[in-house]
Simulated scan of single mutants.
Amino acid sequence: MNGKKLVSLLLAGVVAGSILVTSTTTAERVVAQTPMEAATEYFDAYIARDAEGMMFYSKDTNYLDEKSREEGYVKDFKTNPTTGYEIVESKQINSNEVQFNVVQKYAGQSYEQSPPLPFKVFKSESGWKVLVEPLEINTLTGEVTKGTPIHALQYMDN
């Protein structure tokens, strides 16, 4: 009889612990009320290597679905270690869009930081979101141009 009570008590503790962890994790994500809040939450999640946070505060046109998006972010954390960022400029486009130029700082790369990269922040039904679009950076000239989405890239063997 005591064995059954112990198992029930342990299961109750596991369930309560799961609820606590879930509610704590969910409570940390607050819908962005301003464009700057969306941008800082997104880039803070990027620096923290928090794929879920990045996904919560953005829309990313590089990926076709959420699964490949999360996998892409996790891979990017390993191959492209971003250590910091600075929002160097913001410009109101209209009441539903703001353009931010962001310099990203890197570790272990041949270059220490990016040129200013353009990111739009837009008002969605679920708060402000960062629009992540494919960009190509010429590391010699610093020129930034529109890139090809990751899902559309084709790799060829030589």
Rank of each mutant, 00 (worst) to 15 (best):
M1N: 06
M1W: 02
K4Q: 08
K5A: 01
K5Y: 02
K5T: 13
S8Q: 13
L9D: 15
L9N: 01
L10R: 02
L11K: 02
A12F: 04
G13W: 05
V14R: 04
V15Y: 07
V15Q: 00
A16R: 08
G17Q: 09
S18W: 06
S18P: 00
I19M: 07
L20E: 04
V21W: 15
T22A: 11
T22L: 14
S23Q: 08
S23D: 11
R29L: 07
V30M: 12
A32P: 00
A32E: 00
T34F: 12
P35R: 08
E37W: 11
E37K: 05
E37M: 06
A38V: 00
A39P: 08
A39H: 08
T40R: 09
T40A: 09
D44V: 02
A45W: 05
A45P: 07
A45T: 02
A45Y: 03
Y46Q: 14
I47E: 02
R49P: 05
D50Y: 01
E52Q: 13
M54V: 04
M54A: 06
K59N: 15
K59C: 06
K59T: 08
D60C: 07
T61V: 10
T61D: 08
Y63V: 13
E66I: 12
E66C: 13
E66G: 15
K67A: 10
S68W: 02
G72P: 02
Y73R: 09
K75R: 13
D76E: 09
K78M: 03
K78T: 15
T79Q: 06
T79G: 04
N80R: 14
T82F: 00
T82G: 11
T83A: 15
E86C: 14
E89R: 12
S90D: 07
K91T: 05
Q92D: 09
S95L: 10
S95K: 05
V102N: 04
V103L: 05
V103I: 09
V103C: 10
G108H: 13
Y111V: 10
E112Q: 01
Q113A: 08
Q113W: 03
S114W: 00
P115W: 01
P116A: 06
P118A: 00
F119T: 05
F122H: 13
E125A: 05
S126I: 12
G127A: 09
K129Q: 13
K129H: 12
V130H: 06
I137E: 11
L140P: 01
L140M: 15
T141R: 09
V144N: 04
V144P: 06
K146I: 09
K146S: 05
P149W: 03
I150S: 07
H151Q: 03
L153T: 15
L153I: 14
N158E: 08
